[in-house]
Design a protein around this nucleic acid. Structure first.
Lengths: 207, 207
DNA sequence: TCAACTGTTGAACATTCGTTCAATTATGAT
DNA sequence: ATCATAATTGAACGAATGTTCAACAGTTGA
């Protein structure tokens, strides 16, 4: 008779991390239908009651999951730019290439995001997390756009509005592709964004 | 004793219409939380059982609600363009003006849309409705962009990709404003789109 | 070796959900 | 007036939900 322990104790910090990751896996697989405490606890290999022991309510766990996914995706795109050397324009292209790769252009992520959007109005934490990470995303774009201008012969423009517009175009393409991948190919989305930047630096925009 | 009838009989067609409208009101008010048959039937002033009498399941009612909202919004923007005379460029501006008005740029609509996005993967009807209305929306944009080119001195471009890009930018701006209206003002979103079109017709885009 | 601590369990509870269906009743034809 | 039709009702049902809490058990330090 091997005496295998019925469970393994863990420090709250690590257990919480596991639960957050399990929550994201559940959301990626089944969207809002996978968000029950029973499904999450099964995915994490823990009991039902443990969730409310570490989190005041389920919504707090989901808010923590939003925080992680949003931060991870932001980090992903930031590293894309950092790792790619070259000119500012080349770095922008590297960013686009990563954005329209299967890492981000993924229907599984939309499944998660839709649940978060649904929560953002009710959960203060989710809304704050959105505002913070989205501001970071736009700041990254604005910095890249700014770098483009710091070269001779490039006309200036309203960096803030340009970042908002580019961010919107990226999000809109991402969303529509996830809802119906037949509408356009990822390479076409990439081309649309490249053309937008080319137009911007050519001074055609009155921004 | 006045003998007020306990209910009023209606032909299925009209009753269904009432239920669809009640469903949309519920979604606008409370999002997915307002989508229960009890809440909908209370809003419509009918009994619980009547929903399943006219619709095989609740999902079919929601799909019908999607169909109506999507069609209504598409009709709204189409009429915006039809009613505005003037040059193609002025009609485009009229369209933008209507799009960034409180009629469409409304957090209530996002509440509804998020629920539909969540359903689109599971419900064949909802997905078909999305594909159809979204194609109509893009076709409208493509026609307007096409009209812009049919004037002398305007360089040509890939109408399909341009429509996809503009559609994405509109959607992205709409979504982000609904999630956080503090990010930018509606007039700024309008300006971003106007600048995009100006850049397009100036030939700055390689589309 | 033995407590003290606390991470962990899972049955139980009160709600809420979508759906069903037998009974009811408004309505139009005869 | 009477009847057949079908629109409407609402109680009932089983399934699923988030949360609670008393009991359990692994871990650690003395």
């Amino acid at each position: 008779m091997t005496d295998t322990p019925k469970f393994r104790r863990q420090i709250p910090e690590e257990r919480k991390k596991e639960m957050v990751e399990a929550t994201l896996r559940c959301l990626e697989q089944k969207g809002s239908e996978g968000l029950s405490v029973r499904n999450i606890s099964a995915e994490a290999g823990i009991s039902i009651g443990l969730i409310n022991h570490h989190y005041p309510s389920k919504d707090d766990l989901v808010a923590a999951a939003y925080e992680k996914l949003a931060t991870d995706l932001l980090q992903y795109v930031v590293r894309l730019v950092e790792q790619s050397g070259g000119t500012p324009r080349e770095r922008m292209s590297a960013f686009f290439k990563g954005y329209f790769s299967s890492e981000i252009l993924d229907q599984k992520i939309l499944r998660v995001w839709v649940v978060f959007w649904n929560m953002s109005e009710k959960s203060e934490k989710v809304r704050q997390s959105h505002d913070r990470t989205y501001a970071g995303f736009r700041a990254q774009l604005e910095q890249m756009l700014c770098d483009l201008v710091n070269h001779p012969g490039i006309p200036d423009f309203n960096h803030r509005l340009a970042a908002i517009g580019l961010s919107a175009m990226l999000d809109g393409l991402w969303l529509e592709w996830c809802l119906n991948p037949a509408t356009f190919a990822p390479e076409e989305g990439l081309r649309i964004c490249e053309a937008w930047v080319d137009g911007l630096v050519s001074g055609a925009f009155d921004l």
